[in-house]
Design a protein around this nucleic acid. Structure first.
Lengths: 190, 190
DNA sequence: AAATTCATGTAAAGAGTTACATGATTTC
DNA sequence: GAAATCATGTAACTCTTTACATGAATTT
């Protein structure tokens, strides 16, 4: 059943993006959502299964029942031509500026309420998490960048590579910013 | 009434952060939430008024009824000592790595599904929005950086200044990344 | 035999946006 | 006199997380 009137959610486009690369069961979609798409969009299986059913009803994906474990029939999903077209149209569609929601910056915004030693410690812990995320991204990029297709804009690996590059640049900048903040704290202390 | 058992939401800490700087009516909290705190955390008045009532019930803020426009009594809120302590404890508390949710990167992750001209156009529009946000942040920083207190870690302006600096660095990095992506697209075209 | 993974769902609650509702004061 | 701003709330809906539920196949 195709219902083109039904609007597709952001999560829907995340799932279509996964299925455009490779067909998968719902379970696999939930696994693949963690890495590397989970670096910029996350969803749990409890959100994914209902969304797959909606995409199916809208004709964006189709499924076949296959053999598998579990008390219910295992379904393998594939993107349809309609779904492929909807995804491509969304990718180049209107860009409304997205509100940023960053809990770390929200904390830093109230950092003046704590003493400078505690502030320095907080920023140090912030650095640690940025560093470990950066390390993970770098490993991931090393795996991807050498593969054939990673330099071809029509290949999914190209998109994986340039988004990882964005993550790496952003974490490096965050680390530099943290070092700068500690210096600002230290400068005031003297 | 003080209920220390009630957990405070992220929005609650955003509001406490505002009231720690200066007492305000609910209406003013909603206005102040837009700039500059709205650069990293947003909320509408429909979320703010109920949250203020919860903070009030938890003893984190207190209010007095003042003269003002509107069909209901106008309340001016002030953070309590309890609220101040809860805010400071939260600022330096445990840091769980936050999941990133970035719709722009989600698009770019599927950019391989569109032709290189459309991809280049998309990145160009991305650059425009980053540039205009950067310009706004720079203006804001110019207003803040020169004021007395902006270099004192115990002054709210210090926190405003370092968070703005973070926004500026992050947008500049995003712009460089966009330019790099366009070059990568162009390199493949030759 | 026990633990883990595969596999798909629903329920409840919290977080967030949009829309509805009201009415006084101030500015044009 | 009209429009904008001040001022506070509720209702409905969407999105997201956490918890509940089930059971087969595989690995230890």
């Amino acid at each position: 059943m195709t219902d083109p009137a039904a609007a597709i959610s952001n999560l829907g486009f995340a799932i279509l993006g996964l299925l455009a690369r490779r067909e998968s069961t719902g379970y696999e979609v939930a696994q693949r959502m963690r890495r590397p798409i989970g670096y910029f969009w996350t969803a749990r299986h409890s959100q994914i299964y209902p969304e797959l059913n909606r995409l199916d009803a809208a004709g964006m994906v189709e499924h076949e029942v296959i053999d598998g474990a579990g008390p219910r029939p295992t379904k393998r999903y594939r993107i349809t031509e309609t779904g492929r077209a909807a995804l491509a149209a969304w990718v180049v569609g209107e860009l409304e500026p997205q509100p940023v929601r960053d809990l770390e910056v929200l904390r830093l915004w109230s950092i003046w309420t704590v003493d400078p030693e505690a502030a320095d410690d907080l920023i140090g812990r912030l650095e640690d998490t940025h560093q470990s995320v950066l390390d993970r991204y770098l490993e991931e990029l090393a795996e991807v960048a050498g593969q054939p297709g990673a330099r071809d804009p029509a290949n999914p690996l190209f998109a994986t590579r340039i988004t990882l590059e964005g993550g790496i640049r952003s974490r490096r900048t965050a680390l530099e910013w943290c070092a700068w903040m500690r210096a600002e704290l230290a400068a005031a202390n003297r």
